[in-house]
């Protein structure tokens, strides 16, 4: 099973990932509506691409009262069914990683869907700071590994890993 991996030492904060993601999600360039965000920490010269970890027991999915969020069979991504979502925002406050947000224009929530197995953020990343790879010998940590070191409070398991 593949997952997003991040090497934050390579990220240049060029925001190509945000452009690609927003295009994928909205058909326009609009970083404010991107599911991935390259956070910028200028004082320590660190830039961190950050998106959904696709956790197994996903807070967003489990809290959705209308089961609008489901597991994609192929990628194990947690995907939002826009037709079902009523915009109640419960998922947005339930996910402690904040990786699902409400779009006031559509009245629905949006999150990373791994682009059906071909994440566009990975495709456009000019420095290979974001990778989509199988478990292998690569030293690049999974995006979720950052989360796993986050806190005992919200320990997460990645889908089928």
């Amino acid at each position: 099973m593949k997952s997003l991996r991040v090497d934050i030492s390579k990220c240049t904060a060029c925001k190509q990932c945000e452009l690609a993601c927003s295009w994928h999600l909205t058909g326009q360039f609009n970083p404010a509506k991107s599911a991935i965000k390259a956070f910028v920490f200028d004082a320590i010269a660190r830039y961190v691409p950050y998106a959904c970890f696709q956790c197994d027991e996903a807070w967003c999915m489990n809290s959705c009262p209308i089961s609008a969020i489901s597991v994609d069979v192929k990628t194990k991504a947690k995907i939002v069914d826009k037709n079902s979502c009523v915009g109640c925002k419960v998922c947005t406050i339930a996910c402690p990683f904040g990786t699902i947000s409400f779009d006031s224009v559509t009245g629905k929530v949006y999150k990373c869907d791994l682009c059906d197995g071909d994440p566009s953020c990975v495709t456009v990343c000019p420095t290979d700071a974001i990778l989509y790879k199988d478990v292998d010998t690569a030293s690049t940590p999974k995006m979720s590994e950052w989360a796993l070191r986050l806190t005992d409070a919200y320990s997460i398991k990645e889908a089928n890993l």
């Binding site: 406050i93 904040g98 409400f102």
Partner: peptide, 16 residues
């Protein structure tokens, strides 16, 4: 509206 608002739950929960 605030994007990534769930992070506030994370911040409170982690207690760092």
């Amino acid at each position: 509206d605030n994007d990534r608002i769930g992070i506030i739950k994370g911040l409170i929960g982690q207690g760092k």
